[in-house]
C-alpha cells in the first residue's frame, strides 16, 4: 500500500491535475447534456457528489469481500441504489430542476467517472481515502461543468444564473444552448486547457 496516494493527494489530484472531465475524459454525457445553464450544471454536480461519495465509501468498506469477476455488477447495483435516492430527493424538493435534468439523473448509473473511481481508488484503499477521492473528483467535475455552462449560458442567453449580465443589445447566440454548442464549447475549452498545460510543461522544462 506504500505506493498508493494518500487521502490528501487523492483530494488535490481530483480537482485539477487529474480533472475527471478535461484530463481523464470521463463522464462526458452529462458534461455535454446539462451544461446549457449554470443551475442545471450545479444540481447535476451535487447529485454526482452524493452518489460518488456514497458509492466510494460503500465499495471501500466491502472491498475485501469483492470477487473479481462480479465486482462491476456490485459497483453498478450500489450506484443504482444511490442514484434512486438522489432522483427521488430531487423530484421531491426541486421538482422543476428534476424535470429539466430528466433522464440524465438516472444516467449517472452508467457514468464512467463513478465506476472508474470505484475501480481505481475505492476497491483498493481505505474509507477515508475513498471519501476524500470522491469529494476531490466531484469538485473537479463541478468545476469543469460550471466552466462549460458559464460559457454556453453567457453566449447563448446573455445571462448567468438567469440574471442578465450582457447588455440587452447582445444578440443571443441561440446555437450555444442547443446541442451543437455543447460540442463546440467543450472542444474549444479542451483545446485551450491542453494548450495551457503544454505551455506550462514547456516552461517548466526550459528552466
Amino acid at each position: 500500500m506504500a505506493d498508493q496516494p494518500t487521502a490528501a493527494e487523492r483530494f488535490i489530484q481530483g480537482i485539477l491535475p487529474e480533472n475527471p472531465v478535461y484530463r481523464q475524459l470521463l463522464g462526458l454525457c452529462p458534461t455535454l447534456a446539462v451544461t446549457n445553464g449554470l443551475k442545471a450544471a450545479i444540481t447535476m454536480s451535487a447529485a454526482v457528489l452524493f452518489v460518488l461519495f456514497c458509492a466510494n465509501v460503500i465499495v471501500s468498506l466491502i472491498r475485501n469481500l469483492l470477487k473479481p469477476h462480479l465486482r462491476i455488477v456490485i459497483f453498478t447495483l450500489t450506484i443504482a441504489t444511490f442514484v434512486t435516492f438522489a432522483d427521488r430527493f430531487l423530484a421531491a424538493y426541486v421538482y422543476q430542476m428534476s424535470k429539466v435534468l430528466g433522464p440524465y439523473i438516472p444516467l449517472i448509473i452508467v457514468n464512467c467517472l463513478i465506476i472508474c473511481r470505484c475501480e481505481v481508488c475505492a476497491s483498493k484503499q481505505g474509507v477515508v481515502t475513498a471519501g476524500a477521492d470522491a469529494i476531490g473528483q466531484s469538485l473537479g467535475f463541478c468545476l469543469a461543468l460550471c466552466s462549460i455552462a458559464a460559457v454556453r449560458e453567457l453566449l447563448g442567453t446573455g445571462m448567468l444564473f438567469d440574471i442578465r449580465v450582457l447588455p440587452v443589445v447582445w444578440p443571443d447566440w441561440v446555437i450555444m444552448v442547443l446541442p451543437p454548442g455543447a460540442f463546440l464549447t467543450f472542444g474549444l475549452l479542451l483545446g485551450l486547457v491542453n494548450w495551457y498545460s503544454d505551455r506550462r510543461a514547456a516552461a517548466a522544462g526550459g528552466k
Partner: peptide
C-alpha cells in the same frame, strides 16, 4: 497540436450535430 485527438473530434461532432 493542442487540438489533436479528442478536442478536434468534438468540434467536428458539433458541426455534425
Amino acid at each position: 497540436k493542442p487540438f489533436k485527438g479528442v478536442a478536434i473530434s468534438l468540434i467536428v461532432a458539433g458541426i455534425l450535430s
